[in-house]
């Protein structure tokens, strides 16, 4: 194959050019950043699920305190997530622009045979999720508790402990208790997250070439299963608060 491959700059430059500039490279970057975010989403969800069970307030507050105590490491995590989000969005925009150009004239009549709703709505669910994340960050990370109207006092880290920590548990309950509008918006958004992931996870696995013949049937089900799990996990906490199970 004499001159079939064009020669981009050697070494790392070549890798970046191919990853950044090709259809498969862009999708792979979207897949890797997406899977990183999926990892975070699961960690985040497991954290929230500590709102259930005996001594939930202590467990949850301790978990929040642990995260805060990570210091610089926390910032490393935050910046990594930020980078993943930016990469995810940038590659999504690139892919979208290319794809729009690939079909300048649309069909008068389109009938989908296999494409799921989740797959067709990736772009829309993606944009809504971005807005949701910004709103969510604003409410729980950027604004101080006081600014959101939560006035609960600091509580001991453990029963009998003298170390006082912010009552993040209480803040959560405050955020959803008796606020059906906010709760349902939140539940709706994590629903969209589940939808996004149900296609996104298996799409990412396909893009990265993990779906070989042997794993294929199993991995094709992984996306929807995990998407459903994410929805149930995230929606259960605010719904339980609204319903009064968590006080």
């Amino acid at each position: 194959m004499e001159d079939a491959v064009s020669q981009p700059p050697p070494g790392v430059g070549k890798v970046i050019a191919r990853m950044h500039g090709s259809t498969i490279g862009q999708k792979a970057l979207m897949a890797v950043s997406g899977l990183l975010l999926v990892g975070f989403v699961f960690g985040h969800m497991l954290g929230h699920l500590q709102m259930f069970g005996p001594n939930a307030r202590e467990h949850y507050n301790a978990y929040a305190h642990f995260l805060q105590s990570l210091g610089e490491l926390l910032w490393v995590m935050r910046l990594t997530l930020l980078a993943a989000v930016i990469l995810h969005i940038v590659s999504a925009v690139q892919v979208t622009l290319r794809n729009k150009a690939a079909r300048p004239i649309q069909y008068a009549n389109v009938k989908w045979i296999k494409a799921t709703f989740a797959s067709r709505a990736m772009r829309q669910t993606g944009v809504i999720l971005l807005l949701f994340i910004l709103w969510h960050l604003l409410r729980f990370t950027i604004m101080s508790a006081a600014a959101t109207g939560f006035t609960g006092p600091e509580v001991p880290l453990k029963p009998g402990s003298t170390e006082l920590v912010p009552d993040v548990y209480g803040r959560m309950v405050f955020a959803f208790n008796n606020r059906p509008g906010i709760t349902l918006t939140y539940v709706g958004c994590v629903g969209l997250l589940g939808v996004h992931l149900s296609h996104g996870i298996q799409s990412a696995l396909q893009t990265l070439g993990v779906l070989n013949a042997a794993y294929r049937p199993l991995l094709k089900k992984v996306g929807p299963a995990l998407g459903g799990l994410v929805f149930v996990g995230f929606a259960s906490v605010p719904l339980a608060i609204l319903a009064g199970f968590i006080k």
Binding site: R98, N99, A102, W112, I113, K114, S119, R120
Partner: peptide, 10 residues
């Protein structure tokens, strides 16, 4: 000028 794979399966 082809687009990228969207994994719809169409």
């Amino acid at each position: 000028g082809f687009g990228s794979c969207t994994n719809f399966g169409e």
